[in-house]
Design a binder for these strands. Structure first.
Lengths: 227, 227
DNA sequence: TGATGTGAAGCGGTTCACAGCC
DNA sequence: GGCTGTGAACCGCTTCACATCA
């Protein structure tokens, strides 16, 4: 086990490995080799071993990895053993859709509060989740122990919302506004930019007509995107 | 101008440049140098020049790039000058939220149809967009000239939905189900995996406690994520 | 002079291949 | 024998630095 900087590409793959293990556990598998794991889920065995080796020697030579044990390790490494409390800013279509997104609860995230600046919405509820005035963000965030914020407001408001969030001491933010945001470097910002993804599809469509059927091996970045 | 394979990282940045140009146009700027563009939007000037040079010699030495002209070039390159018709499969919270996502229309995408397998929903409308039976996908897709599909169904149905989509001849698919999908290589699949993004935030939170304030230069992958 | 376009260097991540251990 | 953990080779993307041209 090394104490080097772990690439985000590695941690992203840990999430994927965790999913694979869930499937294997459901089937009752006890051990799995990196080779078998790779074959089955279309991954690379050397990469699996290398990714895991950053965090410890979880495998047993000649045997492979113990499925349940490895699952526990990954859960721990990803910090998924303790609950995270999420605030969603923007109670529009997207914000409310995210509020009962199943994936949150699956990863031990709980949506604790919604925020908006629209008088009409404030005080309403989406499922069990109340909509608060964005002005009260810091107060509510502290009270409800929010540690993750999701920005689901129009692009032009995103930067100021982000500043409010960071001033309240939140260190992890997911942004859905299609605009680049600036943060201090002790805050983790993940931007999910649907516009870029869409335009990437558009580019593909505009340039694939000529390449009829003929196709190349996807490069590593493309594999990353396809997951 | 070269005829090599263009990396998706490059085309993603073209989307970003296009946004920057929109802002500059709104301000009435006529020309911009790669250096100024980079400074202002926190990009790298050499990279801008290299990205653009893949597609032509758009710049003028000693001057820079003509803003309006470059905007037109990028729009053309990204295939955004012609409308794309989108079908969204899954008329749940996410699917309906996406249906009137502003970003679609901004990039010249029009949501033409929703699909579901729930009898209750079929025949209903979300805004102007009708919900069809997924069984009729091929027929409706052909009639409405759908060229992009969005998968917004639970993970366990995603693969079979994808197959239905590709059998109907759709070549560009955006997937929101948190599961890796397999496609033939002439189909472009972009997966937006919120679970991975969330768990990446969780990892950061679990490992940042010790790194109090102390921080490192983000690497290129992280910059990519932050956009 | 000033800014582009581009070969070359640098850097990070992936894959190979094998020594080491069960 | 089988599989892990890992140094080394490889590959692709980014950044530098400068020849080139308006």
């Amino acid at each position: 086990m090394k104490v080097e900087k772990i690439s985000e590409l590695t941690t992203n793959r840990l999430s994927i490995y965790l999913r694979c293990l869930n499937e294997l556990i459901a089937e009752g598998a006890k051990t799995i080799s990196s080779e078998k794991l790779a074959k089955r889920f279309h991954l690379n065995s050397a990469q699996i071993r290398k990714d895991l080796a950053y965090f410890g020697e979880f495998g047993v030579r000649g045997v492979g990895y113990y499925v349940g044990e490895l699952h526990n390790h990954l859960t721990k490494i990803l910090g998924l053993e303790k609950e995270h409390c999420v605030a969603i800013i923007g109670a529009g279509r997207l914000g409310t859709a995210l509020t009962d997104y199943y994936g949150f609860s699956q990863s031990n995230f709980t949506v604790a509060a919604l925020f908006d600046n629209d008088e009409e919405k404030i005080g309403q509820k989406v499922g069990n989740v109340k909509i608060f005035d964005i002005k009260d963000f810091a107060k509510v965030a502290k009270r409800d122990k929010i540690d993750v914020a999701v920005i689901a407001v129009p692009a032009q408001f995103a930067q100021s919302v982000l500043e409010k969030i960071t001033q309240a001491g939140i260190k992890a933010v997911m942004n859905f506004a299609p605009t680049p945001l600036r943060v201090e470097c002790d805050v983790k910002l993940k931007t999910v930019d649907l516009t870029i993804s869409l335009e990437s599809l558009s580019y593909f469509l505009a340039h694939s007509n000529n390449a009829n059927g003929k196709n190349l091996k996807p490069n590593s970045t493309e594999r990353r995107n396809a997951l």
